[in-house]
Design a protein around this nucleic acid. Structure first.
Lengths: 336, 336
DNA sequence: CTGTTAGCGCTTTCAA
DNA sequence: TTGAAAGCGCTAACAG
């Protein structure tokens, strides 16, 4: 085992720009220039500096750089949960876009809790990120104040509002709920049930769905993350409540899959006895048996649009639109 | 829309410790002390400082703090993919542990590529993280050099080696493959197939399985991430190769689920015609129909153990063991 | 309990 | 094309 631990033996002196400069026979500033804009340094000097960097294994200190320039090249991202595929894939495309522009990501979870969001944001802001990505449009007032004080671009994603903090990229959850209701009515369903996880945006879809569908829509509200097990349980409870045939709108594909599994194990036919509509169009949805009808949101486009908006703000370009609606689409397959 | 964009109008001066001190009638250092160790400041002064902080909305500059103290309270984490539940849940528990110890996470993807890992590590190290988490045990020599130069604790997770860079938390993939082979033989299977995704560790499980199972084991190697669709395709290709009955070992539960779906849609009985063993014991595995037999790795324990090891190193405590085997367990359910 | 003095390792500005 | 000087906003000694 190679010992990498810190406080053992002589304090390993980190290589600085001055050391590199000394070795290359130039001053520290010249090294700095060689790194930030090689064209401002003579080819010969550049070569010597490069050699010195190679020889010493110099790694520039971005903390010092950020402090001096007051640009950290750091972007903060706050998501409810990193294990939820919805937010993970959003982070993936967003961070890919930001990395291409030379930014690194500081990532934290907020657990769907505005108070926690505020605490986490404070620690993130202390790192002086150049921009921040927030999930959702509901933030504590303390949070809004801090953001205002930070004076950095902020992008709110995964939802839409008329009054974003800065830029906002998402879609209307209420509209999505209504669209599913119209779709279900159009397919001739007279009865409906909803199984949803305990997440505010899912709740908005559920309410809009119930409202638009009319009649009495049975509801099962799950707590915690949306899982296959939750979906099985959800259908069971719907059935207990007297739900016999009709359409079940689930707040995620994982839940919908659970409904499918439970239906199969009870010998109920889909979509004959019960029809199912999911949400998210995850990779597996199209390959279930029967293939799942669901609501598709282009998460990749969403992350990319967020990255574009942020980089535009960062480079001072005017951002074309402050409110970007990426929309959604009902993908009709076989379960409804 | 509240304008948060940066270069508009007067340069919004950020509040500093000096400004807070001036307002509270003390020097800048006293403010620093009030923040880092309130007990070293008189109650009265503390109150005035707190008031000033509140009034100004002061957010300390951690970049300056880190530069001065050469401790960044930042931990770098490099994972192959953030959308893969395996790594996401690992990150979740690890970062929870680190946050409790006062550290923030710099997270990047390496895409299963050592060269990319090295590039990303270099940019991370420029932020002077206090520690680093790496996925896997295979790193480029450049990478090892950089790590050595950085002189920070490093934890390699999700695999095991006799010669870790520093600390290592994981389990033996080869042993897991052999264990599944023994299990399958014990269940009386004479023929076996393997469906695996293009990931080095999955490959090691596959090879060890094939080796230990003996006879000729049919293989389907998928490229890209492990998906349900890949599993369906995998079984189809196994069948095309003449596989008729026997056990199919999949490199992930998602793949196994695809095999299950494909089997059902072809009217093959499970485990009668084909038996299936997954890997990972994801949340849905127990709730599939039939419930999936799979290999369970305690990812939460893994992340927590990694966080414990790192915080121990960071606080100078001797780390009890440098190599921590969290093991695995075959969870026998109904598919095999 | 509080203040003074030195940096941390860079970028920026101004000169040469 | 290069360098000198002056910070960026904090922490770490050391005094008092």
């Amino acid at each position: 085992m190679t010992d990498l631990s810190p406080p053992s033996g002589a304090p390993r002196r980190r290589v600085t720009m001055s050391a590199v400069g000394r070795m290359a026979g130039v001053s520290q500033v010249t090294v700095s220039r060689a790194l930030s804009d090689p064209s401002k340094v003579s080819p010969d000097t550049l070569a010597r500096i490069r050699r010195a960097i190679e020889a010493t294994g110099f790694v520039p200190n971005a903390l010092a750089g950020a402090l001096a320039s007051s640009r950290s090249r750091l972007v903060s991202a706050l998501v409810p949960s990193i294990t939820n595929i919805v937010y993970a894939s959003l982070l993936q495309t967003f961070s890919t876009g930001m990395r291409e522009a030379g930014y690194q990501m500081l990532i934290s979870e907020t657990g769907f809790d505005p108070a926690e969001e505020e605490r986490v944001a404070a620690t993130h802001l202390s790192r002086r990120p150049d921009a921040m990505l927030l999930t959702g449009i509901h933030h504590s007032t303390g949070m809004r104040r801090m953001l205002l004080g930070a004076g950095i671009p902020v992008v709110e994603v995964w939802d839409l509002t008329d009054s974003p903090l800065d830029v906002c990229v998402g879609f209307s959850h209420a509209e999505a709920g209504r669209a599913v209701a119209a779709f279900a009515r159009g397919a001739g369903h007279e009865r409906a049930g909803v199984v949803s996880a305990g997440d505010a945006r899912a709740g908005r879809r559920r309410d809009a769905f119930a409202d638009a569908f009319g009649g009495d829509v049975l509801r099962v509200d799950l707590t915690g993350p949306a899982t296959l097990a939750g979906g099985r349980d959800g259908l069971a409870r719907l059935l207990d409540q007297g739900f016999a045939r009709g359409v079940v709108f689930c707040s995620s594909d994982a839940l919908a899959q659970g409904v499918l599994v439970e239906a199969a194990s009870r010998g109920l036919s889909v979509p004959g006895d019960i029809a199912v509509v999911g949400f998210g169009d995850q990779a597996f949805a199209a390959h279930l048996d029967p293939p799942l009808t669901t609501v598709r949101v282009d998460r990749e486009a969403l992350g990319a649009a967020a990255a574009d908006a942020v980089t535009a703000r960062l480079s001072g370009d005017p951002v074309p639109r402050a409110i970007i609606d990426v929309g959604f689409r009902i993908v009709r397959r076989a379960t409804a």
